[in-house]
Design a protein around this nucleic acid. Structure first.
Length: 107
DNA sequence: TCCATGACTTCCG
DNA sequence: ACGGAAGCCATGG
C-alpha cells in the first residue's frame, strides 16, 4: 500500500514549489519519473483540495503558463488572485513572464 | 479485465 | 501562427 503513491509524490513536489514561482505538470511528471503522465499530475491535483496538508495547486499550470485548473478553485479568478498575491502577474488567466518564473522540481 | 474520463503534451493540417 | 485531433498514463466503475 501507499508505497510512494502516485498522488503523494505529486503532492510532495507541489508543496516544494517556492512562493512567487510556478511549474508545469510535465515538469512534475518528469520529476516523478513518469514524464508521460502529465495528465495524471493534474488529475492528482484535483484531489489535492481534500488532502492534508493543503497543496499550492495554484502554482501549477500547463506548459503554456495558462491557468487551466482555475475552474477547480472556488472562485473563477481565485487562482489568478493567489498567484498575484505571491507577486506573480497574471493576465487573462495567463502567467506573465511565466518562462522567467518557471521553477524546476528537478532543481 | 475492459471501457471511459481527465488541472496535459505533441503533432498535423 | 492557429485550431483540431491523437497519444500517454493512472484511477474508477
Amino acid at each position: 500500500m501507499n508505497d510512494e503513491n502516485f498522488f503523494e509524490k505529486v503532492y510532495a513536489i507541489a508543496r516544494e514549489i517556492p512562493p512567487g514561482r510556478v511549474t508545469t505538470y510535465g515538469a512534475i511528471a518528469e520529476a516523478l519519473g513518469t514524464k508521460g503522465s502529465a495528465r495524471m499530475v493534474g488529475y492528482a491535483m484535483n484531489g489535492s483540495a481534500t488532502v492534508t496538508p493543503p497543496v499550492p495547486a495554484h502554482r501549477v499550470v500547463n506548459r503554456t503558463g495558462l491557468l487551466t485548473g482555475k475552474r477547480a478553485f472556488q472562485g473563477e479568478s481565485l487562482m489568478a488572485e493567489l498567484l498575484r498575491n505571491e507577486g506573480v502577474e497574471v493576465i487573462n488567466d495567463q502567467v506573465v513572464n511565466f518562462r522567467h518564473l518557471f521553477w524546476n522540481p528537478l532543481k
